[in-house]
Amino acid sequence: MNALADDPGHETASPVGATIPMRVRDRLGLRFWLPAAWITMVVVLAATASLLPLPSPIETDFTALSNWPDRAHWFGTDQLGRDILSRAIFGARISLTVGLLAPALGLGIGMLLGMTAGYFRGRVEIVIGAAMDAVMAFPGILVVLAVTAYVGASVPLLVILLGVLTVPTFMRVARANTLVFAQHDFVLAARAMGATHWRVLSLELLPNVMIPILIYALLVVSRIIVVEGVLSFLGLSLPAPWPTWGNMIADGQVELATLPYIPFIPAALMFLTVLSINLIGERLRARTDLRGSVL
């Protein structure tokens, strides 16, 4: 406290308020934790699927074709005698892998391009902007259809194709936020303290731009999960016999008359997962949105 003796008129910040950081506890609430619990469950099940005591998702059991749920097969079996529960859990792997990796790829490239464009402006921005417009001009689904139909689908290919298609929007979000934050004096202050452009981008701007872009990424994840579902419904994702939520829905159509609930299981899983991700994203956005907060 002897520092204060040097400074008689210092502002009186109460020592209590200083030791216990003042923070209004804005609870995340059930609308966050319930979806979060669901996502955690799906992720854990998908990740540990091969360790779980589940029947194989691709082995056919000719003693149990098109069965209603029973003790051996909790969700029943499809027309080839494959366990629906097991297929649904293994199917989650594909949906989640593609749904997470493709946006991750798009986020990585898009953020790099967007921050470069937003910070340096000028010719760099024009070139990057034009390239992104060119990517956006492609009818995305058609490109994916054409390529997967021609080369044959695989998880890496889907990740790359869908990832590239998300680059332009990530780039735009990153650029818009970089433009805003680059106006702040802390960028100038960092430069005035001897920071290189690279340091300004990585240490000053990135932590600020990261928050809105991660929240936006959650929306993209849910969209990509649906897109992957559409592709596999059309038979353009992973080839049979490997299960995905989309091809389970497609296969289930055949038996609508006898076992009408089958396509609803993967559909419900996908619905709940996408809904959960959107709810989490919405909650986090509201939480970090400066417009609504004290700032």
Partner: peptide
């Protein structure tokens, strides 16, 4: 910059990250 010549800006709300 920073070592020999340093600068303090007008608005600390904006000049701190």
């Amino acid at each position: 910059r920073g070592r020999d010549i340093a600068m303090v800006f007008q608005d600390p709300t904006s000049s701190l990250n």
